[in-house]
């Protein structure tokens, strides 16, 4: 298990670097969509929630999993949809400017 933990830390550190590299290039105009998009991505914890709720029983661990799925799905669905709504507005302007 300690080996797995160490591999996890490897992955974490490298992913942080990738994140820093990409995100410093994002223009300030897109910072709000970036934040709500990143927000939706943090809902990836839904994967853990699904594993927690898999038995479908009324055990405490499953019910906690159910609650986790609800929270995570609000985060994922809401986050991606609202980001798309915002980015659509940015796109419209592009078309108008091209005319």
């Amino acid at each position: 298990m300690t080996g797995a933990l160490l591999v996890g830390i490897y992955v974490f550190v490298l992913a942080m670097f990738v994140g820093f590299e990409i995100i410093t290039k994002i223009p300030p105009t897109l910072h709000t969509p970036l934040m709500s998009g990143a927000n939706a991505v943090s809902g990836v914890t839904i994967v853990g929630a699904i594993i927690a709720a898999q038995s479908g029983s009324t055990s405490i661990s499953s019910l906690l999993g159910l609650a986790a799925i609800i929270f995570a799905t609000v985060n994922v669905v809401g986050g991606f949809l609202v980001t798309d709504r915002m980015l659509k507005m940015f796109g419209q302007k592009k078309k108008k400017a091209a005319k």
Partner: peptide, 21 residues
Amino acid sequence: TGFVLSNNVLIISGALVGASG
């Protein structure tokens, strides 16, 4: 959570969001 479940997707995407914030 990714560390808890030994799940690399969670670790990677979580780290991206962490870096962004």
